[in-house]
Amino acid sequence: MSWLPIVVLAAITFVVAAFLLRVGRGGWTILGATLLFGLAGYALQGSPGQPAAPGEAMQEEPIDGELLVEARREFFDTSQFPSRWIVTGDSYLRRGDFERASGFYRNAVEENPQDTEAWLGLGIALVEHADGQLTPAALHAFEKAQALEEENGGPRYFLGFAWLRAGEAERTFELWREALLAAPEDAPWRESLALRLMRLESMMRPADAAE
């Protein structure tokens, strides 16, 4: 076992906190110091050369459902309320009940197959229900949302975030770059997405240099 997976895991943890959980710039120093402290402790007491125990998988910390709802709503007109099915699904998403949330989002797309936000909500809920894994059903939901509203950056953003959690930062970069290129000039989320793309690019550079 090499150090690379451990360093990549630390980088992904930082990206999750900085991009989706939106830890403020003032908190980056503390977050970075915490991660470095953990790596230093592992260097002193850990055994990176020893094989992992069989049958043990690393568990990812659950993501706050409230933050997922807020992040999704950034890509839509907040002056207009979503459908009743989405509102109910959001209430379950906030509680972390992703299975029930996905059921209500399915009701939303069945009632109105042209509802971009319903398809996006369904994709997000399905990914979380699968513990962060991008399932075929979730991928289909993201693709439907993107096909309905090409200029909306939400589907590419959350699809890219799913790939990022899987360690596919290059796919994430390409999706977020495509979302930015397709975004209307006056989109309220454009600046935020551009900033996240720049952060991701800067974090990818050390890994590219190492290769």
Rank of each mutant, 00 (worst) to 15 (best):
L181S: 11
A138C: 13
E201H: 12
G167S: 05
L139S: 01
N152T: 07
A138W: 14
F173V: 04
E150W: 03
K144Q: 15
M198L: 11
H140P: 10
K144S: 15
T135D: 04
A137S: 15
L181Y: 01
A182D: 03
A141Y: 05
A166G: 02
Y157I: 01
N152W: 12
E168R: 06
L200H: 06
E143F: 08
E151V: 04
L197Q: 08
G154W: 01
E170Y: 01
S192V: 01
E168Y: 01
R199N: 15
L195I: 11
E150L: 08
E149N: 12
E149Y: 07
F142A: 00
L193Y: 07
P184M: 00
A162G: 10
E168W: 00
G153M: 08
E149I: 00
W176Q: 08
E143S: 09
P184K: 08
G154E: 07
E185Q: 13
A141L: 13
E143D: 14
E185G: 14
A145L: 10
G153Q: 06
E201C: 05
L175S: 12
F173M: 02
L181D: 14
A187Y: 10
R190P: 08
D186N: 07
A141E: 01
A179R: 00
E149F: 03
A130F: 14
W176S: 10
K144F: 11
P136E: 05
A130D: 12
F158D: 02
P136F: 08
D186A: 04
E174S: 11
A179I: 01
K144C: 06
D131K: 08
Q133D: 07
L164R: 07
P136W: 09
A194C: 05
A183F: 11
G160E: 01
W189Q: 07
A138R: 13
A138F: 14
G154K: 02
Q133C: 02
E191A: 15
A179G: 08
A166I: 08
A166K: 11
F158Y: 05
Y157K: 05
R199E: 12
R165F: 03
F161P: 12
R165S: 09
A183V: 06
E178D: 13
G154I: 03
P136V: 05
M198T: 13
F173S: 11
Q146R: 12
T135N: 08
F158H: 07
A137E: 15
A169S: 04
M198I: 07
D131P: 07
E168N: 15
G160D: 04
A130M: 07
F173W: 03
R156V: 06
G167C: 02
R190L: 06
R165L: 13
W163M: 09
E168V: 03
R171T: 14
R190D: 02
F173H: 11
E150T: 13
Q133P: 06
E143V: 08
A147F: 06
P136R: 08
F142T: 01
L164K: 04
E174D: 15
W189V: 07
R156T: 06
A141M: 10
